[in-house]
């Protein structure tokens, strides 16, 4: 577990493609396992490799310039996608907050929605995007969305710490272009930060939007 956390922290700071990140992750996990089998302790390995920041810097300093340029381009695209996503979320929130006469949650089971939200937050905390894709609409099962979420998380903080508690969960049903959805807002406390999540779920409780602040 400690190894996975350490490797994740390095991977997040790498300036290279997602494919290369995944390869490096596999490499690091494999080599750290080999070092453990060789009798090195995890503490010694982490000391030898340096802090995640320094270990990632070592990689970034040695990547070819074209890799770094491509990473910069990707970051710009991700930032643009994140900006669009934030704008869309603001529009949804404004719409959500407008008085509409009937803001009941007739078509959703509150307990099921809460359970799904907690599961999604568990997966986000574990950086388990593969599993999260199973609970998202098809349009959100893309690398760009995954990268945008990672980027958004890093923008909040690179070290959230362990989750402490969930705040109240607020739900509101809405209809967009004939499609029923539920907007859910919850504040979650972590050791080093506090995050307000806003999720959109469709009728099948598949995630169709996410906003973090």
């Amino acid at each position: 577990m400690e190894m996975k956390k350490y490797v994740n922290a390095i991977i997040r700071k790498l300036k290279c493609s997602h494919t290369k990140k995944q390869e490096i992750r596999k490499w690091l996990e494999s080599d750290i396992s080999a070092a453990l089998e060789g009798g090195e302790s995890i503490e010694h390995i982490m000391e030898r490799m340096g802090t995640p920041q320094n270990a990632a810097k070592e990689f970034n300093d040695n990547f070819p310039p074209e890799e770094l340029k491509a990473a910069k381009r990707r970051r710009n695209i991700i930032t643009a996608v994140a900006v669009v996503a934030v704008l869309a979320a603001i529009i949804v929130l404004v719409y959500w907050m407008l008085p509409k006469g009937s803001v009941e949650i007739d078509h959703f089971n509150e307990a099921q929605v809460e359970e799904r939200i907690k599961l999604l937050i568990d997966l986000l905390d574990a950086d388990d995007y593969e599993q999260m894709r199973e609970y998202a609409i098809a349009e959100m099962r893309t690398q760009e969305v995954e990268d945008a979420i990672r980027q958004a998380k890093d923008m909040i903080s690179t070290d959230w710490g362990a989750r402490q508690s969930f705040g109240n969960i607020y739900l509101s049903e809405l209809t967009q272009m004939g499609q029923r959805a539920v907007a859910v807002q919850v504040n979650v406390s972590y050791e080093n930060t506090s995050v307000t999540y806003t999720f959109m779920l469709d009728e099948a409780l598949q995630m169709s939007g996410i906003y973090m602040k």
Partner: peptide
Amino acid sequence: LKEGTLYPILYR
């Protein structure tokens, strides 16, 4: 060598 130095060499 650190991993961050070796891996990019192997890539190249």
